[in-house]
Structure formats: structure tokens, C-alpha cells
């Protein structure tokens, strides 16, 4: 953890969360005075941990660490969006609300992904783990009806540039940060530590 403090671990057992360890760290507040020594307020420091369920999206986040991108498709024959492939993954079809079919689009991503638009920013919010400047790319795939937001780990983004996915397979975080993008043709040696093409 960035603050160097021990944070608790969570598992589920029989459908319940089991928490083990320390989940928050208390720090005393401090007063805020103005230049004349008059009390204006107090600080309220806080450090806490959320416990969050991925539910039906767990398959997507689990697959990234195995070098796979799982998308979803509506297979309801009566749906006006039948056959639509969604990336970001949607647990249910947004039109008919039937459970989507999980499908592996890793190969499609490797062969057809390109940059729809992008942006580069040197300013980030607190808790940002990505090296700056952050290069966002919005990636489109053939046959997919939506456009995925991602992070370009190598090189400079350009619209319509072909990119390929790389995966944090060595020590997955099980977050969207396990999936980065690099320009097609990037040598393996240039990838960030822990990331691989497969």
C-alpha cells in the first residue's frame, strides 16, 4: 500500500465476506487557524478500505491476468440488438436485459484494435498509479458496437493507429489496469514490467 500501512484482506465463504486484518487507520484531527489565530475549522483525516463486488463482471477482470479480453454479446433471438458485441463488457444486454453471452475477443483485439480518439494529460487526481503524462486511448474493434477506454503504455497516440493489448500476467491487480495498449509492432522488451502480449 502506498502509505506503507498494513491493510486487511477479504475473502468470501458461503456467500459472505470474511474480513481479516485492519481496514482503517485513525489519525487525530488538527485545528485550522487564520492569520490572527482565530479558529476557522479542523482537518478530518481518514484512511479506509472499500470492499467491492465485481458480480457478473468478475470473468472480465479475472481473464485479463490470463491474457484474455472477454466481451459480451446479446444472443436473444427476439432482441433488436441481437448479435451486438459489447466492450466494455455488459452482464445484461442494455436493450432486452437478458443475460449476455460471454465471448473471447482477444484475437479480434490483437488484429483489429485501433485508436478512435485519445488524450494526453500531465494532471491526474490523487491515488493515480499511472506514470505521467497519462495517455488515454479509446479503442475500437471490428464488429464491436462500443469503444473501450484504455491506457497507452508505449509510444504516442494517434487517431486510427493500430494498437494491440498487453496484459499484467505476472502479478495481476484484477483491475482494468491489467489491460494496457501499445502500438502494433512494439517489441516485447519495451513493455512495462510484468506485462506480456499473451
Amino acid at each position: 500500500m502506498s502509505c506503507g500501512k498494513e491493510h486487511g484482506k477479504v475473502r468470501t465463504e458461503k456467500g459472505r465476506y470474511k474480513l481479516d486484518g485492519k481496514f482503517h487507520h485513525s489519525e487525530p484531527n488538527t485545528p485550522i487557524f487564520n492569520e490572527n489565530g482565530k479558529l476557522m475549522g479542523v482537518t478530518n483525516p481518514r484512511d479506509m478500505t472499500y470492499v467491492h463486488s465485481y458480480g457478473g463482471e468478475a470473468i472480465f477482470f479475472e481473464s485479463l491476468g490470463k491474457g484474455k479480453i472477454m466481451a459480451s454479446r446479446c444472443d436473444n433471438p427476439n432482441c433488436e440488438s441481437r448479435g451486438s458485441v459489447f466492450m466494455p463488457f455488459r452482464i445484461h444486454c442494455p436493450d432486452c436485459l437478458m443475460k449476455s453471452t460471454v465471448m473471447d475477443i482477444t484475437e479480434k483485439a490483437k488484429t483489429t484494435a485501433k485508436v478512435h480518439t485519445f488524450m494526453i494529460t500531465a494532471r491526474t487526481g490523487a491515488f493515480n498509479p499511472l506514470p505521467k503524462p497519462v495517455k488515454f486511448v479509446n479503442v475500437e474493434f471490428d464488429g464491436v458496437v462500443t469503444i473501450l477506454m484504455g491506457y497507452l503504455a508505449v509510444g504516442e497516440p494517434k487517431m486510427d493507429m493500430r494498437v494491440v493489448p498487453i496484459f499484467n500476467t505476472k502479478s495481476p491487480t484484477y483491475t482494468i489496469l491489467d489491460l494496457f495498449w501499445v502500438p502494433e509492432g512494439t517489441p516485447e522488451a519495451s513493455l512495462p514490467e510484468g506485462y506480456t502480449f499473451d
Binding site: Y54, E57, F61, P88, T121, R123, T124, G125, A126, F127, N128, P129, L130, V134, F136, M149, G150, Y151, T175, I176, L177
Partner: peptide, 9 residues
Amino acid sequence: DWETPLGHM
């Protein structure tokens, strides 16, 4: 899950 971790910005 899909956006905030990317830069928190």
C-alpha cells in the same frame, strides 16, 4: 471499475 483507475482524473 472501467474508468476511475485510469488517472483518477
